[in-house]
Design a protein around this nucleic acid. Structure first.
Length: 765
DNA sequence: AGTGATCAGATTTTT
DNA sequence: TCTGATCACT
């Protein structure tokens, strides 16, 4: 035991050994927070606590996995794997599946992601005949989300004068009604959205005391990471679960609270003190990560915030380098300079590319960085952006899986009923929706017995519907007999979905096919991996239902790295939370971007932006480089930018303000800047060499130059070679029609097409 | 019913 | 710049 504690400082040790009763750890950036959590759990286990009785809630699944691995190294056997550890959402989704019948849900309920919710809300607004511009799905959903996070049900919402008045003022008086409809529709579809997972757990614990009691007894020790980013709903879950024995330990840093837009509430830290008067508080203030300059600069910045728990983070590390400030003329040049600096540092400092991170405020900023890194052939890995699981082809095939597991899932049904095309169109769907509404059944129920509802659909289409339902039924029948991989492959083949993508030889099509392959590989791994699961799942042939249980809560961060070559990391600051890198570039540090233009109106929002900046600074171990551009493309337009106020908040003692002479305005397209040659003229990036996102379907590189002129349709003659934007090079093999109706048959590499010349915009080669 | 072309609208962060 | 929605043509 002593040797376990030997690697900890006094404060850390205090937080680890105080296993009984409520503990709050306020952990400054880089102060060994994760270390405390892992050691605390390992300590508990060594003391003989059954890992099955420990619940640890983390912010991402990845964090949970890594922590399990580290604990696994501290305790013997595979014990660590029976810990209950994961995100709030994944842990409680699991409990909900076990207890769902109490709430009237089937255990195989679907979890709707944001897109599903949006599409559902849109169809509700439409069905109510309301103006979709006034009743914007995203606006409605964010209000509903906020309500749910504060445990306000649809009924309670309608009763709440303040909320209802706000909606009236904003000319959306029907919001409460739509909230109610939305919930009803979710229930009918046997689906829950992200917020429901937490909301329903609260309902479960409120309405079924004996169930709550069961879990109180099971979870003897509860730990919560990133406590500053929990919302009220999460707070109450923890409070209820811990009410029996109060062995609860929360770890957080109010200075790093950056998710209030999602309902996170720093108040939870203050509430915690009130809830447990005998609370023991430990402050971890020694930073082991960064140099003195970085720590001091970060402290200086964060002290501009009014609301915070007092603490003074310090370090005994070297003074280190000053923070570097980079001013560039454009976002393009910013990317270029960042890439060049990484290139040079990598050589001069003898480090690998995984020592570098480029952090930005918004995902869209990644583009210029990517282009620049690609030009220098520097490998990079992008986190976030358009998630793998949000890609169309992935969502399509997952929709099949969803429908097979849970046939009430209407969003899934709508997505695939006519993909690949099988002659069931808009009109038919409208009729089905009406019939479903009339008979109070799900659309699926109507389809399955399409003949018995006297639908005014012609018999050919009825047969198509029945073919579809037979197909789905046959897959359903195989759920229990085939493993996930075999069934998934079968589905891909017999729906024609794989063939459809296989025949598409455009770069987009190829990439889509590869993405499906990647997903299939993932399913295969899932089937083959033999993890020790806890009592909720018995070990068996892992089925597609098993696979689908976890999938909705996965994000890109959970995806396995396909190779181990060191790469530069690109991500938003939000995603960088909890990570550390020797060299950190913070780019786009400009007014209206960082702080975001959306955050300038209130002090509260501005302080959150500042905390975000604090998080960015404290990711770095050795050096921070802050850059900003004087011009930047936003929404395709050039905008002028000013350096962020946050730069001024860093004391001159810690930042290296560059000499002005290095940053003269360019006189010619090519110039020398800081020793780096930069082409200021727009240059198309060459096709990357594979060290980029595999899931990238953008094909801008393979399209012809957008500036190219189109030929007049009248000039096009038989036998000419022409260029088409999408299909590429082709030959005119037939001409037909006159004037604006002139058509041509063009033979392309992948077959011939009939094109109307007025629209086709062919270019004569 | 299916397809392509054009237009409007959006971008702050995410489990 | 990119996406989704809508329109118009076959």
């Amino acid at each position: 035991m002593e040797e376990l504690l030997a690697g900890l400082n006094e404060k850390q040790r205090e937080a680890v050994v105080q296993t009984e009763g409520p503990v709050m750890v306020i952990a400054g950036a880089g102060s060994g927070k994760t270390r405390v959590l892992t050691y605390r759990i390992a300590y508990l286990m060594r003391k003989g606590v059954d890992p099955f009785k420990i619940l640890a809630l983390t912010f991402t699944n990845k964090a949970a996995r890594e922590m399990k691995d580290r604990i696994g190294q501290l305790v013997s056997g595979g014990l660590a794997y029976s810990l209950w550890m994961g995100t709030f959402h994944s842990v409680f989704a699991r409990i909900l599946r076990a207890e769902s019948t109490l709430l009237g849900y089937p255990s195989n309920f679907t979890i709707y992601d944001t897109d599903d919710s949006k599409s559902l809300m849109k169809s509700i607004v439409k069905a109510q005949g309301l103006d979709p511009k006034v009743y914007q799905a995203s606006v409605l959903l964010s209000r509903i989300s906020a309500a749910k996070n504060n445990l306000i049900s649809a009924a309670a919402y309608a009763q709440n004068q303040e909320l209802v008045n706000q909606d009236k003022v904003n000319s959306r008086p029907e919001t409460a009604f739509l909230y109610d409809l939305y919930q009803k529709k979710l229930f009918q579809s046997a689906a829950m959205d992200f917020d429901d997972l937490l909301f329903k757990i609260n309902v479960l614990f409120r309405d079924f005391p004996e169930t709550l009691y069961k879990y109180q007894k099971r979870f003897q020790y509860i730990l919560v990471d990133e406590y500053q980013d929990t919302n009220f709903s999460q707070y109450l879950i923890v409070k209820k679960l811990a009410a029996d024995n109060e062995n609860v330990c929360v770890v957080g840093d109010d200075a790093q609270s950056i998710y209030s837009f999602r309902g996170a509430n720093i108040e939870n830290i203050l509430n915690f003190k009130q809830d447990y008067p005998q609370l023991k508080t430990v402050k971890l203030e020694q930073n082991y990560r960064s140099t003195q300059n970085i720590v001091n600069a970060a402290n200086k910045v964060i002290h501009n915030n009014k609301s915070q728990i007092f603490k003074e983070v310090w370090t005994s590390n070297d003074t280190g380098e000053k923070i570097k400030l980079l001013k560039t003329t454009s976002d393009r040049e910013e990317g270029s300079m960042v890439a060049h600096q990484i290139f040079q540092d990598q050589m001069n400092q003898q480090v690998t590319l995984d020592s570098f991170a480029v952090l930005y405020r918004t995902n869209s900023q990644s583009r210029s960085i990517e282009d620049a890194l690609r030009k220098l052939n520097l490998a990079y890995r992008i986190y976030g952006g358009l998630s793998f699981y949000k890609r169309k082809e992935i969502k399509d095939i997952l929709a099949y899986f969803r429908l097979i597991v849970n046939s009430s899932d209407e969003e899934a049904l709508k997505r695939i009923i006519n993909y690949p095309a099988r002659g069931i169109g808009k009109t038919t769907m409208e009729k089905l929706t009406l019939a479903a509404h009339k008979h109070e059944k799900s659309i699926w129920d109507i389809i399955r017995e399409a003949k018995s509802y006297g639908l005014s659909i012609n018999s050919g289409t009825i047969n198509k519907l029945l073919d579809f339902s037979t197909m789905i039924e046959s897959f359903k029948a195989q759920l229990d007999t085939k493993n996930a991989y075999d069934l998934a492959t079968e589905i891909g083949k017999s729906t024609g979905l794989l063939a459809d993508l296989y025949h598409d030889k455009t770069p987009e099509g190829v990439s889509k096919f590869e993405n499906i392959e990647e997903l299939m590989n993932g399913i295969k791994e899932f089937v083959e991996e033999d993890t020790v699961e806890t009592d909720l799942h018995e070990q068996k042939n892992r089925s597609l239902s098993d696979y689908m249980e976890g999938i909705a809560l996965l994000t890109d961060a959970d995806k396995k790295e396909d190779d181990n070559t060191p790469k530069v990391s690109l991500m938003t600051i939000h995603q960088a939370k909890g990570l550390e890198y020797p060299f950190v570039h913070i780019v786009g540090v400009e007014e209206n971007l960082f702080p975001s233009i959306m955050a300038l109106h209130s002090r509260k929002d501005l302080e959150e932006e500042r905390r975000l900046f604090y998080v960015a600074l404290t990711r770095a171990e050795r050096r921070v480089t802050i850059s900003y551009a004087e011009t930047r493309f936003k929404w395709g337009k050039l905008e002028y930018c000013e350096p962020s106020r946050f730069i001024d908040e860093i004391d001159d003692a810690y930042i290296d303000v560059p000499r002005k002479s290095n940053f003269r305005k360019p006189a010619t397209p090519t110039r020398v800047s800081g020793g780096i040659r930069i082409k200021a003229k727009t240059v198309k990036p060459t096709l990357p060499k594979g060290n980029y996102r595999k899931v990238d379907t953008s094909s801008s590189d393979s399209k012809p130059q957008p500036g190219a002129a189109y030929s007049d349709p009248d000039d096009i003659k038989m036998g000419m070679m022409v260029m088409h934007q999408r299909f590429g090079k082709g030959e005119i093999i037939a001409l037909d029609g006159q004037g604006s109706n002139k058509k041509a048959k063009v033979k392309f590499k992948d077959g011939s097409k009939q094109l109307i010349l007025r629209f086709a915009r062919l270019k004569i080669l």
